[in-house]
């Protein structure tokens, strides 16, 4: 899902970096010092979650869970996922440097969109309805991410359009898996610790200064 250096046009790189900077700025605004440890530990948790492999037949895919990150962190998903991508690039050699902005937007913007679309649903009084909204959010986030990856490639040149289409269709099973896993995760959190979903949403609605 990560795009590497050298593939994208300079305009796309600069646009991505500008959007990422704006998103990170908004995310940090929603993070008062009180919430920093929670955001940091959750960011680490999502980093570890992305190391989990799910078998698909003979192959396997790793989880991304950006939809769930959006539901839990709101706008703070932007800086949290950026930190994850930065660490992956620097220490695991995964992704790239000039594409960091584009990759951040492709992963974190769907998270924020899912946050706005599904946060009411996962607060539903029925845990089953909440789980369904969680699954919808998890699947939608991956669909949006692959869509954004395809757009970033297509904007960079005609020759990438077939590859961009392939990326999208190849990820349909991943969307289904992410949806099921995210739905189950929401179901568990609703039963064990429902406050998890309001920790960051509350900070945002108050508009707490950083």
């Amino acid at each position: 899902m990560h795009i590497v250096d050298g593939a994208l046009a300079p305009e796309v790189l600069i646009g991505g970096a500008a959007l990422a900077a704006a998103g990170i700025g908004l995310g940090l605004k929603s993070l008062p010092a009180e919430k920093m440890p929670a955001a940091g530990v959750l960011s680490a948790a999502f980093f570890v979650a992305s190391l989990i492999h799910v078998p698909i037949g003979p192959s396997s895919v790793h989880l991304i869970m950006n939809g769930l990150a959006g539901l839990v962190l709101g706008w703070a998903a932007f800086p949290a996922l950026f930190v994850g991508l930065l660490l992956q690039a620097v220490f695991f050699g995964f992704g790239g440097l000039t594409v960091l902005g584009v990759n951040t937007v492709n992963i974190a913007l769907p998270a924020v969109i899912v946050f706005y679309l599904c946060r009411r649903g996962i607060a539903s009084s029925s845990p089953a309805v909440a789980a369904v909204w969680g699954a919808a959010g998890g699947g939608l986030a991956i669909a949006l991410t692959t869509g954004f990856v395809a757009i970033s490639l297509a904007l960079s040149g005609e020759e990438f359009v077939p590859a961009a289409k392939l990326v999208f269709f190849a990820h349909i099973p991943v969307m289904a898996i992410e949806a099921l896993v995210a739905g189950a995760a929401v179901a568990l959190v609703r039963r064990v610790k429902p406050e998890l979903f309001v920790t960051f949403a509350a900070a945002l609605s108050k508009g707490a200064p950083s």
Binding site: E34, P37, G40, L42, V72, A185, A187, L188, V192
Partner: peptide, 24 residues
């Protein structure tokens, strides 16, 4: 498998936020 891994991720998040409360 998908449900079990979902519970696993959910449990990690719960433990993360509880740990962060102690850290704070």
């Amino acid at each position: 498998t998908f449900r079990s891994l979902g519970y696993l991720v959910g449990m990690m998040l719960v433990r993360a936020i509880e740990r962060s409360e102690r850290i704070l």
